[in-house]
C-alpha cells in the first residue's frame, strides 16, 4: 500500500443473506489505486468484481471495512454527499450500456450533467463535444435502439466522461461487444487513461486487461487472490 493513494479500500466486506445462506460477495479486500492508474479487475463470474465497483461508486454499502477517496471515507458521507460524489467525481460504464432507451444519444449524455450543476446552456455543447470526440457526431439524434453495440457503449463512455470525472469505473465494458468493437472501446479507454483519467475496469478479457491496464488484480470468491502485477511501468507512460 502507498502512503497517499487516490482510492483505497481497507478490509472491505460486503456480505448478505440469500435465504439461509450467507454470501460473502466481497470479503476483506484491501486495495490502493493511484491517481492516473488503469487497474484491471479480473476474475470469474460471481467473484465480486461488480460488487467491488458498486462499493467504490458508493452505490452499495459495505458490511464492514471502508472505501476512501482521497482520504475521505465514503461511509462517513451522507446519501446526498454520496450522490454528489457520483455526480462530480465518478464516471461509470456498464456491460449492458444502461442507456435510457427513449432518449437520443445526445440526451443520454446530457443526463449526466443534470446532477452536477452544469448550467443548462453548457450542457448541449459539452455533450456534443463528448460525442464528437468519440466519433458519434452523426449519431447524436439516434436512440440507443438505432445504434450498434459499439456505438451504444461509446455513447455510454461519452456520458461517463462528459462531466470530467476523476475516476472511471467500467464494469465489463466490452462484455457485450464483438471483437472489433471491444478493441475500439479498449483503445478508447487507454486513450482516456493517457489523458490522466484513473480507470478501474472489470473484465473477463485477460488479453484486453494486459493491453490496456497498468496492473491487474484477480478476484476469487470475494477475495483478491492476486494483488496485481504491473502491466507496464507507469512512469514510462507519456
Amino acid at each position: 500500500m502507498t502512503d497517499n493513494p487516490f482510492l483505497r479500500t481497507i478490509d472491505l466486506c460486503r456480505h448478505y443473506e440469500r435465504g439461509h445462506q450467507k454470501v460473502r460477495a466481497i470479503d476483506g479486500v484491501s486495495l490502493d489505486v493511484g491517481r492516473g492508474e488503469f487497474l484491471a479487475i479480473v476474475g470469474s463470474s460471481g467473484s465480486g468484481k461488480s460488487t467491488l465497483l458498486n462499493l467504490l461508486a458508493g452505490l452499495d454499502t459495505p458490511s464492514s471495512g471502508s472505501v476512501e477517496f482521497e482520504g475521505a471515507a465514503l461511509s462517513a458521507m451522507s446519501r446526498k454527499q454520496l450522490a454528489a460524489y457520483r455526480a462530480h467525481r465518478i464516471g461509470m460504464i456498464f456491460q449492458s450500456f444502461n442507456l435510457i432507451s427513449h432518449y437520443t444519444a445526445l440526451q443520454n449524455v446530457e443526463t449526466a450533467l443534470f446532477f452536477n450543476g452544469t448550467p443548462p446552456a453548457d450542457r448541449r455543447r459539452l455533450a456534443m463535444e463528448a460525442l464528437e470526440g468519440l466519433g458519434l457526431a452523426d449519431r447524436v439524434l439516434h436512440r440507443p435502439a438505432d445504434l450498434s453495440g459499439g456505438e451504444q457503449q461509446r455513447v455510454a463512455v461519452a456520458r461517463a466522461i462528459v462531466k470530467k470525472p476523476e475516476i472511471l469505473l467500467a464494469d465489463e465494458p466490452t462484455g457485450n461487444l464483438d471483437f472489433e468493437n471491444a478493441q475500439q472501446i479498449a483503445r478508447l479507454l487507454s486513450d482516456l487513461n493517457r489523458t490522466g483519467l484513473t480507470i478501474m475496469m472489470v473484465t473477463h478479457n485477460l488479453e484486453m486487461a494486459r493491453e490496456c491496464s497498468h496492473r491487474a488484480i484477480r478476484m476469487h470468491y470475494g477475495k483478491v487472490v492476486d494483488t496485481g502485477v504491473p502491466m507496464t511501468d507507469l512512469k514510462n507512460r507519456p
Binding site: 461508486a57 452505490l59 446519501r79 446526498k80 454520496l82 450522490a83 454528489a84 460524489y85 457520483r86 455526480a87 462530480h88 465518478i90 461509470m92 444502461n98 442507456l99 435510457i100 443526463t111 449526466a112 443534470f114 446532477f115 452536477n116 456520458r159
Partner: peptide, 16 residues
Amino acid sequence: KREIGIFKSLGADEGE
C-alpha cells in the same frame, strides 16, 4: 426502475 438506477449512478440523490 433501470432509468432510476441510471439516474442514481449519475449522481441523482433520493430527494431528486
